[in-house]
């Protein structure tokens, strides 16, 4: 079983070829297309005011979405693992729901509730002066929705694994709930937390379908980077194409960097 048999080689080749044709080559081609006319046009494209705005919006939206998901994610994880209450099993299963829901459905759902005109809550909020749909808050909600399970899924297994002994020890030494959390629990889950944060950041930066519905895509107002890519690609002109590719390239780069961070975190996590 140690000698590389024929079957082993066949498997290797099939797998590598599949990944090459599906992922590696296409991604490389996009990188090539981006810089087809050199670095200059790319820089020009990326410094366009609309592009800059789009990325600023995307980053700030992603930031808030991740903050929300981290805070509530940790809270929900603790509740799911350390406590029992009626409906826990249902909540546990429902937390995974956003993962399997179409982004279009997400957009529609948020629209139905928060739309200024017809939304269940949106009407009230609009009259109070808070516009959700077609404004950044809506984009934040849409972005947060899809990443809800990410942090939870990472932390829950770790909470299970470390058990309550350390926390109980802290309590017996006189620590309050908050102190226990900050000094004992949080350090124990920090790698899982970091992993979850980076991953949800990557997903948040790249959200498209849900954002398309709730944001309206107005340039310099509510147009995120992903919406910009779509808009520019569908317009004519080499400059627009370059802008589309440049923005796409930056998004792809951010995604890959996040993945590399996360991949190198994993072995550390296993060793700790």
């Amino acid at each position: 079983m140690r000698r590389p048999t024929k079957a082993r080689w066949v498997l290797r080749i099939v797998v590598v070829a599949y990944l090459f044709l599906l992922v590696i080559w296409p991604v490389a081609l996009v990188a090539k297309a981006t810089f087809a006319h050199g670095l200059g046009p790319v820089i020009t494209a990326l410094t366009e005011p609309e592009v800059v705005f789009a990325f600023e919006l995307t980053i700030s939206v992603a930031f808030w979405a991740v903050v929300l998901n981290t805070i509530f994610g940790v809270g929900i994880s603790l509740l799911l693992v350390r406590y029992t209450f009626p409906g826990r099993r249902a909540l546990n299963a429902l937390v995974d729901l956003p993962l399997s829901v179409s982004p279009i459905v997400v957009g529609l759902a948020l629209l139905l509730v928060y739309s200024g005109r017809t939304g269940w809550l949106g009407r009230t909020l609009e009259s109070a002066g808070l516009q959700v749909i077609y404004a950044p808050p809506g984009i934040i909600l849409a972005t947060a929705f899809v990443s809800v399970p990410v942090v939870v899924r990472e932390i829950v297994p770790v909470l299970h694994e470390i058990g309550t002994e350390q926390e109980q020890a802290a309590r017996s030494l006189g620590a309050s709930g908050l102190q226990t959390f900050l000094r004992i629990t949080l350090p124990a889950i920090r790698w899982a937390l970091l992993y979850g944060v980076v991953l949800s950041l990557a997903r948040s930066l790249g959200e498209y379908g849900a954002v398309k519905i709730v944001s309206g895509g107005v340039a310099m107002r509510t147009q995120t980077a992903t919406l910009l890519v779509e808009e520019r690609y569908q317009q004519f002109g080499a400059a627009n194409a370059t802008t589309a590719y440049a923005a796409a390239f930056v998004l792809a780069l951010l995604a890959v960097v996040a993945l590399i961070i996360v991949t190198s975190l994993r072995p550390d996590k296993e060793n700790s």
């Binding site: 081609l29 996009v30 997903r203 790249g206 992903t226 590719y245």
Partner: peptide, 26 residues
């Protein structure tokens, strides 16, 4: 190890960019 990262790319990549990516080869 490189393959590990490659496999996660479709998960982390914005879907609109995924479309662009596949378009380049297909």
């Amino acid at each position: 190890r490189v393959l590990e990262v490659v496999i996660d790319i479709p998960f982390a990549l914005p879907t609109i960019v995924a479309g662009l990516v596949l378009l380049s080869l297909y």
